[in-house]
Design a protein around this nucleic acid. Sequence first.
DNA 1: TCCATCTACATAGCATGCTATCCTCATATA
DNA 2: TATATGAGGATAGCATGCTATGTAGATGGA
Lengths: 145, 145
Amino acid sequence: MPFEKNASMGFVTNRLARLFAQHLHARIAPLGLAPAQFMTLLELWEGDGLTQAELTDRLDVEQATMANTLARMKRDGLIERTPHPQDRRAQLVWLTDKARSLEQPAKQAAHSVNQLALAGLEGGDAAQVLGHMNAMIESLRDKPG
Amino acid sequence: MPFEKNASMGFVTNRLARLFAQHLHARIAPLGLAPAQFMTLLELWEGDGLTQAELTDRLDVEQATMANTLARMKRDGLIERTPHPQDRRAQLVWLTDKARSLEQPAKQAAHSVNQLALAGLEGGDAAQVLGHMNAMIESLRDKPG
DNA sequence: TCCATCTACATAGCATGCTATCCTCATATA
DNA sequence: TATATGAGGATAGCATGCTATGTAGATGGA
């Protein structure tokens, strides 16, 4: 039974991710946003008029997950969708004024959560951790099963 | 808009946690286990006869989450529950033989996922990352909102 | 032109997680 | 002892994510 969960990278990562999500949720809920909506907005704030497929690629979630997130964002008045001019299967996603107005406060909220999390780390530690986490992401991606 | 998601600890942690969960799921699904069930078994394999409240404390999930996970584990024949001898509100959770038989293969599956993730890191990097992640967990826990 | 195949999305079904409630039993206190 | 408060669980409602399917439009040959 040489499996100590507190020394398991997967276990600890899961715990940390849930804590990040809880804190982010608490800070952006007053803005009317949920975490996955915020993540999607991060991409759209860089430029809207994207298709669902493009968002799916850039945010590394499954197509079905993105479809549901976009449906909730439309329901909540964060996006509008228009027919794709060249492809009748696709739609383009556009930000509403409401979504544009949330960019600064939402980014500030996310930034403050990151700052809180990093409060106990030394200067270069954060960059080092990010580098190693990205290395793990590379090792795990495109290797399902 | 100085918010680069690939440099955001929360964003990267979320991505990595989902990858861990996907790989773990792929490897333990053949055993009839889901990730949260495996996590709960990790605690019960160390000693069963625990209450739901004790499991909730040790695994850092909400009470309602644990209630649902235990309901699915009972449905799947992984646990049995008996009345608490001193407290009529509580029940004790016991492993079935089936759950006991899964300890080695399930732990092996989780171990192999961790190994895959860590493949690109140097010797001491994993311990260092774990240390920093635990520091972030400490900074975020018990500070809801 | 026709058909096989692919692609873009939608939907169904399920597991996790969380917050908010509610119920029951336990306990401390007036 | 009567009552207020607390603790253990269950349940409802919702957001995320994933896999598996289904549908309609796009495309590349034969």
